[in-house]
Write a protein that binds this DNA or RNA. Structure first.
Lengths: 334, 334
DNA sequence: TTGTATGCGTTATCAA
DNA sequence: TTGATAACGCATACAA
C-alpha cells in the first residue's frame, strides 16, 4: 500500500510519535532528528493519510455542496466564491450537481452525511420540510436562496424583491406602462419573490396591472425563447419586459432575433442576476446584479462559524443593484 | 458527538459486530434481531462515520478534480459528465476550481493526496513535468486535454486538429480564401492543436497563408472582443475567422456589434466547443462540437478502471463534429 | 527530547 | 447466530 508514518519512523530510526511531531507543529524536537525525519519522509514520498487524520481529529475539513441542475453561469459564479473561501479556510468541497428530483437529492445528502463537517444546499424549492428529518441534530447547514421562515437552519438569499422592484421601476422611468413579467415558476423561491417585487412596482407606479402580462417560465433560456411568441401575441402588446433571470432574458433576445425584432426598440428588456454573458450579448443586457460570488463566500463563512460553534443559525440577505446597459434603452455605463 | 455504532448496539442490546452485520451485507442475522437493530439505528438517527469506514476499507470512494479558472460553460458541461458518472459508480467528487498558478495547483494537489482514490486534472498547460514528482507512484491519474506524449498518466483529449481542420475547410467551402485564426495562446495544449489544424487546412486548400492572419488570444470572451479591432485593421481584411473556442467567438460577435458590423456578412465566423450559449446568440454560432460531457464521463470511467486495477494508462481521443448554424453563412440546421 | 500506548469508528476474523 | 477483538494510520497523554 501507501507509505505510512511507520515506514518513515523506521527509515529515520525514530518512533512514530516523533515523526508525527515533526510533521505537525514540530513540537520540541531536536533539530538534528527533525532533519532526519524530514529527509526520510521526502525520500519515501510520504503523504499523511488524511482519512486517519480525520478520524483521529473528529473532523473532515470537508464541506458538502449540493447544487441543482440548472443555469450554468449562475452556479459557476457561486461555486467560485465557495471554492475560493473554502481554500482560504483550509477546507475542501465535496460537490454534487445535476439533480432535479427531491429523492435524488435525498440520497445524495444521505451519502454525504457521515463524511462532511457541514452542508451547503442551494435548494430553491419552497418546501424543504424533509430536511428536518434527514439532517442529524448537530450538523451545520446553510440554505441558499430559500425561504427563511420555514427553517431552523442558517439561510442566505438575495434581496429578490428589491431587485425586481428596481428593475420594473427603471422600465417605468423609460416611460413604459405596459410591462410584462416572465417569471421563474411558482415552485421556486427566488422566482416568487421577484414576481412579488414586480407586482409591487406595478402597483406603486400605476402601471398596467393585467394578469395576462405575467408569463410563467422556468429560468431556462428555452423558456425565454418560447415566451417571445406569447408576448408578441398579446393585445395590446407590452412595450417592456422584466425577465426574472438572465438566462431567460438571453432566450428572449434570441427569440426576438428570430422574429426579426430587437431590444430595446421593439421590446425593452431587463434581466436579473448579471451573469458574465449579460455583458457580451448584443444588445448588452440591463439587469439586476446579484452578488453570486459573494453568496458563495458568505455561505462558507457562515457555515464554518457554525462548525466552530461560535455562531448560531441566522438569516442574511444580500443586496442587489441595477446595472444599466443597452437592452432597456439606456446608453450603457462606461 | 455524533452517534456511533456502539450507541446503536447498546440500544438494541447486541454487540457492535451484529449491528455492523445488519447495516451492511446483513449476513446471517436472525430476522428478529435485525429488526431490533434497524429500529434502534433509526430512532437514534444513526449514520455511519464514513471516515472510519474509509480508514478500515483503505479507500475513500472520493475522486479529486482540479479545474482551472476559465470559460464557465465549458467546465459546467465537463463537470456534469463527471458528476453524473461518479454518482452512478457510488463515488464522490472533491472539486477545486479557480486557480491559475502552477504553485497554487501544486498545493491543492498536495492537500488532496491523502484523501482521494484518484485524481482527474484538467490542466491544459503543455508542461506538467512537475506532476511526476508530485504524485505518488500508485495513485491513478487522468489528465484531460493535455499532451499525451509527456506523460506516464492516462490522458483524454478532443480531436482538436481534426475539428479545427473541418472548421476552416467549411469556411473555404463558403468561398473564403483569406481566413484568419484567433488562437488560444501558445501555452495551451488545445490551442496549439487547433492552430495546427487551421494551418493544415490553409495549406491543403490553397488558402492565403499569412502570419498576420494568426492572432493570439487566450480563450476568454474579452480576447475575442479585443481581437475585432485588430482584425478590421488588417489589409486586406480577412473575410472569415476561425475562433479557436466559443468564448472568444462570442466576444468577437460582441466586438462586431460595437463596430456596427455583423456576422456572417461582414465576417464569417466559426467557433470551437459548442457550448450551450452558441445556440442562443444572434446570429447563432457555427462551431465544432466537442463532447464536453462525454469527456467528463470517460474520465470517470477510465479513472475507476485504473483504481480497480483492471486497466493501465492509455491515451484516448474524442471525436468532434462541425455544427452548422448562422455565423458561417449557412442556413441553420433544423 | 523521545518512546509507549491508547483511542478515534468501523469491519472482519475467529471463537463461542 | 452472536460476541470479543484486532487492525486501519494517526495524534496525543503520559512515562521515561
Amino acid at each position: 500500500m501507501s507509505t505510512t508514518i511507520q515506514d518513515v519512523a523506521d527509515r529515520a530510526d525514530v518512533s512514530v510519535a516523533t515523526v508525527s511531531r515533526v510533521l505537525n507543529g514540530s513540537d520540541r524536537v531536536r533539530e538534528n532528528t527533525k532533519e532526519t525525519v524530514v529527509e526520510a519522509a521526502r525520500s519515501l514520498g510520504y503523504h499523511p493519510n488524511e482519512t486517519a487524520r480525520n478520524l483521529r481529529a473528529q473532523e473532515t475539513r470537508m464541506i458538502g455542496v449540493l447544487l441543482p441542475n440548472m443555469h450554468g453561469e449562475f452556479f459557476a459564479q457561486v461555486t467560485r466564491g465557495l471554492d475560493q473561501r473554502a481554500r482560504e479556510y483550509g477546507h475542501h468541497l465535496l460537490v454534487s450537481n445535476s439533480h432535479t428530483q427531491e429523492d435524488e437529492a435525498k440520497s445524495v445528502i444521505q451519502s454525504l452525511l457521515g463524511r462532511v463537517d457541514g452542508l451547503i444546499l442551494l435548494w430553491p424549492r419552497l418546501s424543504h420540510d424533509f430536511l428536518g428529518d434527514l439532517v442529524p441534530e448537530g450538523l451545520p447547514v446553510v440554505l441558499l436562496n430559500t425561504d427563511r421562515s420555514t427553517s431552523r437552519f442558517q439561510t442566505l438569499a438575495f434581496d429578490n424583491h428589491d431587485g425586481a422592484y428596481a428593475a420594473v421601476e427603471h422600465l417605468a422611468e423609460h416611460g413604459h406602462e405596459r410591462i410584462a413579467c416572465l417569471s421563474g415558476g411558482t415552485q421556486n423561491f427566488d422566482a416568487q419573490k421577484r414576481l412579488a417585487g414586480y407586482r409591487a412596482a406595478v402597483a406603486d407606479h400605476d402601471l398596467i396591472a393585467d394578469p395576462s402580462l405575467e408569463i410563467e417560465g422556468d429560468f431556462t433560456r428555452e423558456a425565454g425563447r418560447a415566451a417571445v411568441e406569447r408576448l408578441l401575441n398579446l393585445t395590446p402588446r407590452p412595450t417592456a419586459l422584466f425577465a426574472s433571470n438572465d438566462s431567460m432574458a438571453l432566450g428572449v433576445l434570441r427569440g426576438l432575433h428570430e422574429a426579426g425584432l430587437e431590444a430595446p426598440d421593439d421590446l425593452a428588456l431587463v434581466g436579473f442576476d448579471d451573469i458574465p454573458m449579460a455583458h457580451y450579448v448584443a444588445p448588452s443586457l440591463t439587469t439586476v446584479h446579484a452578488p453570486m460570488k459573494e453568496l458563495g463566500e458568505r455561505a462558507i463563512e457562515r457555515l464554518l462559524a457554525l462548525v466552530q460553534g461560535d455562531a448560531s443559525p441566522s438569516h442574511h440577505t444580500l443586496q442587489t443593484r441595477l446595472v444599466r446597459r443597452e437592452s432597456c434603452g439606456c446608453t450603457p455605463e462606461p
